[in-house]
Amino acid sequence: MPEIEKLVFDGILSKEFHDDVVIMGKVRRTHKIPLLVKVSNIILSLSNWTVLPYLLGRSLVIFLCGLVPFVGAMLIAYIKAPRRGLQAQHRYFFLRGMSQQQIRVHYKTKKPEYIGFGLVANLLESIPLFNLLFIFTDTIGAALWVVKIESERKLNMLKEELNKEVRSD
């Protein structure tokens, strides 16, 4: 299903006149990564193992919350919300070619929005039988959110260009 979600995400961006993001992401994907770069990325990712104790503790807390009826499900949804919000827009970050640092900066500027989106997505996806439907509606919602972000970004770029032209006159 991830491939279908990618197609839906890309289709919505294209439908909403943001083909440039989709095309640049696909062009970037076709480049082969040299072996030396792959090896250095693996070596650099070894530092991510330092978060293992945090992840184990977080998993234990989520497990214990899952034992509490009703309230536990809401706590789990809230704990997982920021990650779910970022995961929903992972395709956008890939298409834009954003680094981990750029993603962190973007996340910090829009943290409440990511928590809100992730909370609603987690709660909807926890409903049995309907969760398959909500996986796709969450993808569509994330894509439409990206359309809004891209429109704002392009509008800001146009405003900056206009300000530069006014200053030069």
Rank of each mutant, 00 (worst) to 15 (best):
52 L>P: 03
18 H>F: 07
125 E>G: 10
106 H>M: 05
62 I>E: 02
146 V>E: 05
80 K>G: 06
156 N>H: 11
137 T>K: 00
48 N>F: 05
39 V>R: 08
56 L>E: 04
84 R>D: 00
45 S>E: 08
25 G>D: 03
1 M>F: 09
25 G>F: 02
167 R>G: 01
91 R>N: 09
83 R>G: 10
162 L>E: 07
134 F>V: 02
11 G>W: 08
3 E>D: 15
162 L>I: 13
50 T>M: 10
124 L>S: 06
157 M>V: 13
86 L>S: 03
150 E>I: 10
149 I>N: 10
40 S>G: 00
159 K>P: 00
70 F>T: 15
159 K>Q: 10
93 F>P: 01
166 V>T: 12
156 N>C: 11
60 L>V: 14
36 L>Y: 01
148 K>M: 14
10 D>Y: 04
142 A>E: 02
155 L>I: 11
88 A>C: 08
155 L>A: 15
15 K>D: 04
142 A>M: 03
146 V>Y: 02
135 I>S: 07
47 S>R: 12
127 I>G: 02
16 E>Y: 11
143 A>E: 01
165 E>Y: 06
52 L>S: 12
77 A>F: 05
76 I>L: 06
147 V>R: 13
132 L>E: 04
127 I>Y: 00
34 P>K: 11
58 R>W: 07
87 Q>T: 11
38 K>V: 03
72 G>A: 07
151 S>E: 14
5 E>H: 14
9 F>S: 01
45 S>P: 00
41 N>L: 06
123 L>I: 14
108 K>V: 04
153 R>E: 09
106 H>R: 12
37 V>D: 01
135 I>K: 12
108 K>N: 09
138 D>W: 04
135 I>T: 08
168 S>Y: 05
63 F>L: 13
